[in-house]
Design a protein around this nucleic acid. Structure first.
Length: 809
RNA sequence: GCAGAUGUGGCGGAAUGGCAGACGCGCUAGAUUCAGGUUCUAGUGAGGUAACACUCGUGUGGGUUCAACUCCCAUCAUCUGCACCA
């Protein structure tokens, strides 16, 4: 029996045994626990130590749940479609299917180094036709339910690459690849009506145990606001302009109106004198990218020459065009109240438009406003019959009042837009639609799914704005499933998010060829109890997954409507900039990548797992330090030696040792439960030092050692399993249950407390836990006798079991 | 601009309002060693002292409290998210 720690022997031995004899088995009686990692995109670059962190956290949590007696769902898979894979393929001249398979094999090998308790029988790959059959099936269902529709709309367009770009591919208004300025182009797009779920996506955030930050980001993204649409007649024209406002209480202060340049009436409102300027402004705006429009700090605009009539007081207000009004939000037109809105104020100042104050904070009008007063606090002035009313109250009531008066209606608006779902790319799921000249867009029948992604010679973007699939006539030309006449396949593909929006469902029934997931299995194993991954998907992936789940709930595939009960976002592990020493993302170009493979070779999997946790609070970013891992390695070696020495000693159990193991169990369990994983490790170190000290004397008994070994097993599984065996434990340590502690055993009878004078500690005294106040104070004063000499004691404080403080002058 | 997070030794970090700096890295000294490494022992916030004592100390400035890293107000810096959503 080796007495010094040899990570290679131990880890090799147990990796082999676990594979032959798995611990996590469904006996049909255990309750399930589903702990999920955000599945990786199989990049050609492989993993670095930063990628390990989330996987280690989820594995620790999984093994803890396993020891608590749950049957674990802890799967892994591959998000292998999408742009990165395609770009990698183009760059290296290898077909995406080949490079993806290679990368998956490589990353799988690397992930296995973690020794996480993954169930590889459940593995999914989004590029597998047996998988994307169901990705397409969901699309068909959405199409049948009117949630997938076609629309021609302006998208980002790179005139140099001659291709449409996703928002993510536009960096600072420029094409990510060629850095030329991105413009807009109308393209026919498939859209998903995620807005139909806006209210539920917002309301159900309440029932999720997610970081507040993520919930807030989703809330803001959905952006629900309450207000009113108000109709303004155009003076001298048979037209009405409807504006959306959240502040109908300020209607009397509306001194002008602004329309988005894309508004349907924009050019119609121009008069002979303004026509040229108006047309130029509309044209210029159309040439600007969204990014440009957002970055313009200085307001621009043009007067149309027309006026709108304020329905409340009949005032004539000039109608302007400006690109600070967004065409696709609200009605694309706003009423402007410069006195009470910052943007309207800036616009009024720039173009010298009148400012009428209608809310007075203190009841008085400000003679020369220098900035807008945007709060709904104060009383109404200059507002006809509304004068003297409270603004806040009026703000609530105004929408209904306006509706009753017939000037408009009460409305709700969302920032959330429908989801642009088509990509003019090769490496994605073909959208399962056939365009028939007679029947229009027809879904591919379920028994003909999947629509296989055909092989092509050239998978690079075509430059025509169509996907490379459009060039394959034999594939494109087909017959209409409805009428049998010649028809054409849809050639756009789905975005990367399509496959990742539902993969967590497939894991529980990954090989089913009859259904997306068997209903019985879904009921038994779903939803996900704990989801662990980076915060970068706070809105996109996590919002899309919630949307998909709600839809699948609505059509009866699953009977829950939220996919992830609890979410944990781990922090990033950064490298150091070689020159400045500042924390930076690990990246190839900075040359600060640390390979986990090297670390596992030199220190072992267990040491690296421990260091990934010890490095800092799991939810915060941390900086990798190569020397830091030495500390946890030394700890593991000392721990191993300590246990081994005591195996031979076989010391008797003492009250002190029993107490110590209850305390340790309490410390580790409470810290683990609160996800303070860095202090779990430091707790182990602290207790190990105590045990090493005790080993010098009588030694530590086997029961105490077994408790410590069970506690450490989720963190350092090989060491845990090995020492469990050495201590004569039965079966696997992971089947041994999680240790419990007795509340009575974790408190001490005699405790040491500080004694202070004026809040500064001057001595410590030993007291019995329930010692009377007077006795403790007397003891405290005795301990300070020399220091209290010549001082007047004003007050004596004893907080039971905590502290004595003598206030003296 | 708005919102959120963070700010503690040379470094990573720890502290239900109750002994600031646990635990670890690094460093110093000693032991072991032919030597280096490993390992072990002791020390390690700053000032101060022969050693104690004592003084200062958790981004900055105020406040509450017997007592503040912790609570309140203001302010600065860094990071992240959103960014004309009417």
């Amino acid at each position: 029996m080796a007495t010094s720690y040899n990570h290679r022997l131990i880890e090799g031995k147990w990796n082999e045994k676990w594979e032959k004899d798995p611990v996590n088995v469904d006996d049909g009686k255990k309750e399930k626990y589903y702990c999920l990692d955000m599945f990786p995109y199989p990049s050609g670059n492989g993993l670095h130590v930063g990628h390990w962190r989330g996987y280690v956290i989820s594995d620790v949590w999984s093994r803890y749940k396993l020891m608590q007696g749950y049957y674990l769902i802890h799967p892994m898979g591959w998000d292998a479609f999408g742009l990165p894979a395609e770009n990698y393929a183009i760059k290296h001249g290898i077909h995406p299917s080949i490079s993806t398979a290679e990368n998956v094999a490589n990353i799988k090998k690397q992930i296995n180094e973690i020794s996480a308790i993954y169930d590889w029988d459940r593995e999914v790959n989004t590029t597998d036709p047996n998988y994307y059959k169901w990705t397409q099936w969901i699309f068909v269902k959405m199409f049948e339910h009117g949630l997938a529709y076609e629309k021609e709309m302006p998208i980002n367009w790179c005139p140099s690459c001659k291709t449409g770009l996703a928002n993510e591919e536009v960096v600072d208004g420029k094409c990510e690849r060629c850095h030329s300025e991105v413009t807009k182009k109308n393209l026919r797009q498939w859209m998903l009506k995620i807005t139909a779920y806006a209210d539920r996506l917002l309301a159900d955030l309440d029932k999720l145990d997610w970081p507040e930050k993520v919930k807030k980001m989703q809330t803001d993204w959905i952006g629900k606001s309450y207000g009113a649409e108000v109709d303004f007649k155009v003076d001298g024209m048979d037209e009405t302009i409807t504006v959306y406002t959240t502040r109908p209480d300020t209607l009397y202060g509306a001194t002008f109106m602004v329309l988005a340049p894309e508004h349907a009436l924009a050019s119609k409102l121009a008069t002979d004198e303004t026509k040229a300027a108006v047309e130029k402004y509309i044209y210029d705006a159309s040439m600007k990218s969204n990014v440009d429009r957002m970055q313009d700090k200085e307001k621009t605009g043009v007067f149309t020459g027309s006026y709108a009539i304020n329905p409340l007081n009949g005032a004539k207000t000039p109608i302007w065009l400006s690109d600070y009004v967004l065409a696709d939000y609200g009605t694309g037109a706003i009423m402007c109240v410069p006195a009470h809105d910052d943007r309207d104020f800036a616009f009024a100042k720039k173009f010298d438009l009148p400012i009428i104050q209608v809310i007075a904070e203190d009841g008085k009008e400000i003679p020369d406003m220098q900035e807008a007063y945007t709060e709904a606090k104060g009383t109404m002035i200059n507002s006809g019959e509304w004068n003297g009313r409270e603004s806040a109250e009026l703000k609530r009531e105004a929408p209904e009042m306006i509706e009753k008066l017939g000037y408009g209606k009460k409305t709700v608006n969302y920032k959330l837009r429908d989801w642009v779902f088509s990509r003019q790319r090769y490496w994605g799921e073909p959208i399962p639609i056939i365009h028939c000249p007679d029947c229009g867009a027809v879904a591919v029948p379920e028994d003909q799914l999947p629509v296989l992604l055909p092989d092509v010679e050239k998978y690079e973007p075509t430059g025509t704005g169509e996907s490379p699939l459009a060039a394959i006539d034999s594939w494109v030309n087909t017959t209409c499933p409805k009428c049998g006449k010649p028809a054409k396949r849809e050639t756009n593909t789905m975005p990367q998010w399509a496959g990742s929006s539902w993969y967590f469902l497939r894991y529980v029934d990954s090989k089913n060829d009859k259904a997306l997931v068997d209903k019985e299995k879904a009921d038994k194993y779903l939803p996900v109890d704990m989801y662990i991954g980076g915060v970068e998907h706070a809105v996109l992936h996590l919002l899309y997954s919630r949307f998909y789940t709600k839809f699948l709930n609505d059509i009866g595939v699953v009977d829950f409507d939220e996919p992830f009960k609890k979410l944990f976002n781990q922090g990033m592990i950064c490298g150091r900039d070689k020159d400045t020493g500042a924390a930076t993302k690990m990246s190839k170009s900075l040359g600060n990548i640390v390979s986990p493979d090297d670390m596992v070779r030199d220190y072992g999997c267990d040491a690296l797992r421990l260091y990934e946790l010890f490095i800092g609070p799991p939810e915060l970013d941390s900086i990798w330090d190569d020397r830091g891992i030495d500390g946890v390695y030394r700890f593991l070696a000392r721990f191993y030696t300590m246990v081994m020495n005591n195996v031979e000693k076989n010391a008797p159990e003492t009250d002190e040792l029993i107490k110590l193991r209850h305390k340790l169990t309490h410390v580790i369990t409470t810290r683990l439960e609160s996800f303070s994983l860095n202090t779990v490790i430091s707790g182990f170190m602290e207790y190990n030092n105590k045990f090493v000290e005790l080993t010098k004397g009588a030694g530590v008994d086997h029961e105490t050692l077994k408790t410590m070994v069970r506690l450490i097993a989720p963190f350092a599984p090989h060491v845990g399993e090995e020492l469990w065996e050495c201590l004569g434990g039965e079966g696997s340590v992971f089947a041994s249950g999680w240790p419990t502690y007795d509340e009575d055993m974790i408190s001490d009878n005699v405790i040491t407390i500080p004694v202070q004078i004026n809040g500064k500690t001057k001595a410590t005294i030993d007291i019995v836990a329930d010692e009377a106040k007077d006795a403790v104070l007397t003891k405290g004063k005795e301990a300070l006798a020399d220091k209290l000499e010549g001082l007047n004691v004003i007050k004596e404080i004893y907080v039971p079991g905590k502290i004595v403080n003598i206030v003296a002058k």
